[in-house]
Amino acid sequence: MSLLAVEQLDARHGLLQAVRGVTFTVAAGETLALVGANGAGKTTLLRTIAGAHRPFGGRILFDGIDVTAVPAYARLRTGIALVPEGRRLFNGMTVKENLLVAGAYGNSGPWTLDTVLDAFPLLRPRLNNRAGTLSGGEQQATAIGRALMTNPKLLLLDEVSLGLAPIAVEAVYRSLEALIKVGATILLVEQDIGRALGVATRVACMLEGRIILAKDAKDVTREQVTEAYFGLQRARRVTS
C-alpha cells in the first residue's frame, strides 16, 4: 500500500488555481521528484500535503487515513514533515533551539539531536549560533535536520538547492542520498532536472497545476522531462 495517496487535489490562492486535480501516490521507501517550472504549483502542492495550505477539493490519504481536514499542527504527528522553500528557520533562535523546538511535538524515533548532528556534522560547531547568521548550506542542513527531528515517515523537501553555492548543494545532496539509503520516504521538489533524476526512484512533472508526466526515473530521459517541464508537447499540439 502507498504511504501517501493524493486524489484529485485542488488548491487555490484566491481565484488563482495553483493545483488542478492532481492524483499521485508515494510508496514507502520511495523518492518521488516533482519537477516543473516556476508557478507550476509544486510548492503549493507540498504545502497542501503538509497542511500549511487548505485544499479546495480532493483528498489526501496518509498511511491509509484521510488527513485532508487535519490542521497543520496535528498533521505533524501523523508523520509528515516539511522542509519549506526558503528554509524558514527561526532566525532569531540558535541552531540547537531550531532543532529542539521541532522535537517537542514530533514523534519519537531514531532522530534525536545527537543523530541529526551525526548526519550533519557541519552543524556541531554552529549549535549556539543564531540560525540567521549561518551560511546558506548550513541553514539548509538545519532546515532538513529540523524536519528529521520530528521523526517523519514522509519528508517533503521544497527546493533544497535554491540559492546555495554548488559545493553546498553537493553536500546537501550527499546527506539526502544517505537518508534515502536508510529507507526514508521523500517527496522532493527540484528545479534542477539532473539532480532530481540522480536521487529519485520516480519523477513527476508539473505544468500549470497538473501532473503531465509520471514515470520511473530509470525509464525517463532528460529530454522527456525537459519537454514536459516547458510544456513543449502541448505547445506542439496547439500549433500543429
Partner: peptide, 9 residues
C-alpha cells in the same frame, strides 16, 4: 505558520 507545521497550534 512554520511553528504550526512543527506541531505548535
Amino acid at each position: 505558520e512554520m511553528a504550526a507545521v512543527l506541531g505548535i497550534s
